[in-house]
Amino acid sequence: MDDPVIRLTDVSREFPADPPVRALHRVSLSVAKGDYVAVVGPSGSGKSTLLNTLGLLDRPTSGSYRLDGIETTTLKDGARTRVRGSRIGFVFQAFHLLPHRTVLENVALAEVYGGDRRNRWRRAERALERVGMTHRAGFMPGRLSGGERQRAAIARALMGRPSLLLCDEPTGNLDSRNTALVLDLLDELREQGHTIVVITHEDEVSARAGRRVRITDGILTEE
């Protein structure tokens, strides 16, 4: 069928130090369209490096990373930025909503760098609709609960119709009730066909994923 969304082949990432720190060691991973994968592991295991690599925020030292069939390791900075902007939607633990902009503006921000201006607000409204946040469109993020903020951030991630939804500890700052709401939302998105990779250390989160991979000392194992 199609190319998998993610195909990591023997990806290693070393940080220059004495001796060199190996954050990822010959990691291979394939994520097909519609997969819901949880990456688990203790802190310092290389989770963040894996997330940065998958999110094209960092470049592996060696190996190959194909995103939607595009070999990303040889791309120049500008091209990588464009691929990142158009194919990856990020959801952060800290939400990263701009405090002085309304929820709708925050969502629309996803299409400021690339994307069509026409109907941008319509698409932002539709993205908010999908996370059930239409009633908060004109609010400032400061007036939202944690769960609402994360849902707004997810709407922003969905805005650009990304191939991959990359979530970094999406429930790390949420209480159990809001965690459940966000996880329900991720389930829904998965049912709609989105490809989701969640990085987490919480069992509650990883249990909901269809597939779990564990990373320990830079080495990735399927569970």
Partner: peptide, 11 residues
């Protein structure tokens, strides 16, 4: 915010 913008595709 700069990080976010870079993640959203800002060069």
């Amino acid at each position: 915010e700069i990080g976010l913008r870079r993640a959203l595709g800002a060069a």
